[in-house]
Design a protein around this nucleic acid. Structure first.
Length: 421
RNA sequence: GGAGACGUCGCAUAGUUCGGCCUAGUGCACCACCCUGCUAAGGUGGAGAACCCUUAAUGGGUUCCGUGGGUUCAAAUCCCACCGUCUCCGCCA
C-alpha cells in the first residue's frame, strides 16, 4: 500500500512512478477521489454516531413513561447511522481496492520500461572459456550422478528433479556457506513455515497479478510460499518493532514452491526453472531513511557469495515495469551460464521501502513517540539454481568439476567432482 | 478426530450472572517530578492502538474487549460462524 499522505501531498510523484512502470496513471486520480470520498464518509458516520451515543445516554437515564417515545426517536437515528456506516465502509473498501492497485513509488534512478530495459551497474569477472565443447548442467549432473531429472519427472512430473550424491551435498554445502555468511553479518537464522494464511500472502503482495504462480491448498485455505520472504515479512506483522538498537536482520531458509504457470516451454532443460527448490533469503527491517544503504549492503553480501563461488556475473538495476508491486528498486545479480552464452539471475534484492510494511502493519516508534511504518528489504543469498552456474563454470574436458575453494570445507575437503562410471 | 475450558488496552487480572452507572477498574512494569543524605520504600502526575476533523503549538470526535456477522434505541456482556490457546481422551510417531 502506498502512503495515502504522499497521494495527497505529492500526487505527481506517484504519477511519475506509475508512468515509469508503464502502469495506469489515471489510477492515481481515481485513488485521490476515492480518498476524498472515504474521508467524507467517515466524517458523516462519525458525526451521526456521536449523536447516537449522546442520545443513548438520554434514553438510559429517562424515566419509564418517556422511554417509549425516546426509543422510537432513537430507532430513526439508528437507521441513519447504519446507512452512513455502510456508505463509509463501502467507500473505504473502494479506496483500498484502488490504492492497493498502485505499485510502490520507484526510487530516483530506476530505469523506465520493461523486462529488457534494465541498466547495467557493473560487470565482474570474465566469463569462463573452454578449449573443449562445454557440457550443460543437465548433462554434467547426470555424468556426475548429481542431478536425476528423469526420476524426478517420474515421481512428480515435469520441472521436478532429484539432487543426488555430490549434487545433494553441493546444495547443502552452498546453503551452509550462505548461512555462515549471514551469521557473520549479524543475521538471525530462521527456518520458516512454507504454508501461510491468505492474509500473509496478500500482505506481502504475492496475491496480485502473479497469483497464478502460487500453489494453493483449498482444503486448508493455505498457500505454499514461493520464497521465505513471505514468512519473514509476516513474522513481525501487526507489531511495533524496536529498531532503536539497529535493524532487525533475518536469514530464512526454506524450500520454495512455484507453479511456473506463465513460463510454459521456457527453460525446460535441467534445473534452471523448477517447481521446487531451496533458498536462503536475507530479510531486513530498517528505518525508512536507512533503506537505500541497507539495499547496497544486501547486494554486497550477494556479490561476495558469487565471488566465493568463482562465478562471473553482472549486476543490473531492474526496470520499473519489471518490478513487483512492492519493490521500489530491485537489483539482480546474474551469473554467466557458459552453455547458454548469457547471464541468468542467481540473486535478486528488493527495497520495498514502507510499502510492504504498511500493508502488513509493521511499525516502529519514532523519536516523537508516534508510530510509523518500517522499511523492509529482501535478498537472495543462495538457491538451488546456483548449482547450474557452478557446475558449468568449473567443468573440465573429462566432465569432472573443480570445487571452488570456498566450498571445499563444506564438502569434507572434496576438491573435484568426478563422473560416476 | 471426540469432549470440555478459555481468549479484556505491554504483562497479570476485574467486569460477562441479569445489556445502559464501562468514558473498561486494579496490580506490575514504564516515564516525569516530589520526598527520603545512597539504595529500597513512599507520594503526585502521565502514559494503549488506528482513523477523521481542527490548530502556530492545541483541541475535539469515532472505532478497537481474538476475528467476522447478527439481535437491540444501546453489546466486553446476548446469538451464530470462524481463528487460536489450554486440559483430557482417541489415533499416529
Amino acid at each position: 500500500m502506498i502512503d495515502p499522505q504522499l497521494l495527497r501531498d505529492d500526487p505527481d510523484a506517484v504519477r511519475r512512478s506509475q508512468q515509469l512502470r508503464g502502469a495506469s496513471v489515471t489510477l492515481v486520480d481515481e485513488a485521490i477521489a476515492a480518498d476524498a470520498a472515504r474521508r467524507a464518509g467517515i466524517g458523516e458516520f462519525e458525526n451521526l454516531r456521536a449523536e447516537q451515543n449522546a442520545f443513548g445516554k438520554i434514553v438510559a437515564a429517562a424515566p419509564k413513561e418517556q422511554k417509549q417515545a425516546l426509543v422510537a426517536e432513537a430507532q430513526k437515528l439508528a437507521a441513519r447511522v447504519k446507512a452512513a456506516q455502510q456508505l463509509s465502509a463501502d467507500a473505504d473498501a473502494e479506496f483500498t481496492r484502488i490504492a492497493g492497485a498502485i505499485g510502490n513509488v520507484t526510487i530516483d534512478g530506476v530505469p523506465a520500461g520493461g523486462e529488457d530495459d534494465w541498466a547495467l551497474i557493473r560487470q565482474v569477472g570474465t566469463p569462463a572459456t573452454f578449449d573443449f565443447e562445454p557440457r550443460d548442467h543437465a548433462e554434467l549432473g547426470e555424468l556426475l550422478g548429481a542431478i536425476d531429472i528423469a526420476r524426478g519427472v517420474k515421481v512428480s512430473g515435469s520441472r521436478f528433479y532429484f539432487l543426488k550424491g555430490v549434487g545433494a551435498r553441493l546444495e547443502i554445502a552452498l546453503m551452509n556457506m550462505a548461512l555462515d555468511k549471514a551469521l557473520a553479518e549479524g543475521f538471525t537464522p530462521l527456518i520458516t513455515p512454507t504454508l501461510v494464511r491468505p492474509e500473509i500472502m496478500a500482505g506481502t503482495g504475492f496475491l496480485g497479478e502473479h497469483s497464478d504462480e502460487i500453489y494453493y491448498l483449498p482444503a486448508d485455505d493455505l498457500y505454499l510460499t514461493g520464497t521465505s520472504e513471505v514468512a519473514l515479512a509476516g513474522y513481525h506483522s501487526d507489531e511495533i518493532v524496536d529498531l532503536s538498537s539497529g535493524p532487525l536482520r533475518y536469514a530464512g531458509w526454506s524450500t520454495c514452491y512455484r507453479r511456473e504457470a506463465g513460463s510454459a516451454g521456457k527453460d525446460n532443460r535441467g534445473i534452471l526453472r523448477v517447481h521446487q527448490f531451496n533458498k536462503l533469503e536475507m530479510f531486513s527491517y530498517v528505518l525508512p531513511e536507512d533503506a537505500e544503504a541497507e539495499h547496497e549492503r544486501l547486494l554486497a553480501y550477494q556479490e561476495s557469495m558469487l565471488q566465493a563461488c568463482g562465478l562471473s556475473y553482472r549486476v543490473i538495476d531492474v526496470a520499473a515495469g519489471d518490478l513487483g508491486s512492492s519493490a521500489a528498486r530491485k537489483f539482480d545479480v546474474e551469473a554467466w551460464i557458459p552453455t547458454q552464452g548469457t547471464h541468468r539471475e542467481l540473486t535478486s534484492t528488493s527495497n520495498c521501502t514502507t510499502y510492504q510494511a504498511r500493508r502488513l502493519d509493521i511499525r516502529y516508534r519514532t523519536d516523537s513517540g508516534k508510530t510509523a511504518p518500517v522499511a523492509t528489504l529482501n535478498g537472495t543469498l543462495a538457491t538451488t539454481r546456483w548449482l547450474v552456474a557452478i557446475l558449468e563454470t568449473h567443468q573440465q574436458a573429462d566432465g569432472s568439476v573443480v570445487v571452488p575453494d570456498a566450498l571445499r570445507s563444506y564438502l569434507g575437503g572434496l576438491e573435484l567432482f568426478v563422473p560416476v562410471s
